[in-house]
Simulated scan of single mutants.
Amino acid sequence: MSIDEAFATAEQVTRSEARNFYYGIRLLPVRKRQGLCALYALARRIDDIGDEQAPLEQKRAALSLVRKELSDIDSATDPVLAAVAETARRFPVPLDAFDELIDGVEMDLAGASYETFDDLRIYCRCVAGSIGRLCLSIFGNGTDPRAPQFADQLGIALQQTNILRDIREDLLLGRVYLPRAELDEFGVRLQLDDEGTLHDPDARLATYIGFAAERAQHWYELGLRLLPELDHRSAACCAAMSGIYHHLLVRIQANPTVVYDRRMSLPAHEKGRVALTALAKAVLPV
């Protein structure tokens, strides 16, 4: 398989699986788009290992294999890994960020729970801050030495949005990411009613979600400091990807009960509008 075919495989994975991110990725020039698709495709593979229906030891073995493959990635023949290897030759990709992502998936496999937000932040940094730093290696750092920190913070903001959006679905899988100390403080007991909807007779969960959403907004403010450090096309891509999740957060904050009985998402036309707005604001040169 040629390197062009390897990149085509990674882009096909991204186009079919990155329901939110691809709206932004397609705004990039070819080489950056190829690179980001390669990184996404591998990140998706790692994430899917954690979510697949398979014995626990099989999942752990699969993650160990990915770690081994990453340690000798220049010899890879798998198309996605070959595309990542070529991307790492073209851009300063921090390949150890994939190890952090694997660490986060292993936390899920271990059934980790989080007592405080500081504990949860460590998990978010592994599974999402790592992605922010991988993306930054494709975008370019700009001049502010804090750019990797901004990328990390933006990833954490997106992961907090995911957690609030998926409270019900995660509970069905036996996972609770919301910090236990905070749930206790707000008097929240996470459970489903007979219809499979989050049970919240006293609106305590709604109050908590409002609190957590406000905190996530602050993380967006921190992370979006990255945009002025990026070139026009990269800023448009980053704004589109983060903007879709930010729109989800705004809706959740306005009406927390929207996550009680379904997995909330934006319609395709609204995602497209966010991407076009990001592109327009970037004022692309001709």
Rank of each mutant, 00 (worst) to 15 (best):
R189H: 13
T197W: 14
T197D: 13
I156S: 09
H246S: 08
E214R: 02
V176D: 09
P201R: 05
P145I: 01
L198F: 09
P228I: 02
H199N: 12
R251H: 05
Q191M: 10
R175S: 03
Q217I: 13
I244D: 01
D200V: 05
V176M: 02
V188D: 06
G142P: 04
I167Q: 05
G196R: 06
D193C: 05
L226D: 01
H247T: 13
N141W: 00
D166V: 10
D170H: 10
D202S: 03
D166M: 03
D184R: 01
N255S: 13
L173D: 11
H199R: 07
Q160H: 13
E229Y: 02
T143I: 02
V188P: 06
G187T: 08
G223T: 04
L173P: 02
D144K: 00
V176R: 07
D200K: 03
L190K: 02
L172Y: 06
I156P: 14
E214T: 08
L171V: 09
L154Q: 10
A151D: 13
E214Y: 06
L171E: 05
L192P: 14
H218L: 13
E185D: 15
L248W: 05
G243N: 15
Y220L: 06
D231Q: 11
L178M: 10
H232F: 07
L249V: 09
R204T: 09
D202Y: 14
D152V: 02
G223I: 03
M241C: 10
Q253K: 14
E214W: 08
D144V: 00
L183F: 03
S242V: 13
P148V: 04
G210T: 12
D200M: 07
Q253S: 08
L158N: 08
P145A: 02
L154I: 08
D193M: 05
Y208T: 03
T143D: 12
D144M: 01
E214A: 04
E229D: 06
G243H: 13
E169P: 00
S242F: 15
G223E: 04
Q153H: 14
